[in-house]
């Protein structure tokens, strides 16, 4: 199974990189850009067959290492 983990700064935590990208895009004529957030994507190949088990294990990985839950939120997608 494959797990796709997206990690982003929490709402309310200023995303300086997102703001810088937003300003750069606006400066290049992409005027409709309202907000940009920069995060990271972590792709994990796992020897698991059960989606629920895989999800639980990846959530544990996020809490332990992949995200810093003081400032970041994470989303998990499992692909069979």
């Amino acid at each position: 199974m494959k797990a796709i983990v997206n990690v982003f700064l929490k709402n309310g935590v200023l995303d300086s990189q997102g703001k810088a990208v937003q300003h750069a895009l606006s400066g290049h004529g992409f005027e409709s850009v309202r907000d940009v957030r920069v995060g990271k994507q972590i792709i994990i190949e796992m020897d698991e067959n059960d989606t629920a088990t895989a999800t639980a294990k990846v959530a544990h990985m996020c809490e332990e290492l992949l995200a810093n839950t003081v400032i970041e939120d994470y989303e998990i997608e499992i692909i069979a």
Binding site: L14, S16, Q17, N68, V70
Partner: peptide
């Protein structure tokens, strides 16, 4: 130490990058 939880809070990228 913040990552480990021995100190509270977190350190983000500098505001000016």
């Amino acid at each position: 130490l913040t990552e480990t939880g021995l100190l509270p809070g977190a350190l983000k990228r500098n505001e000016g990058l």
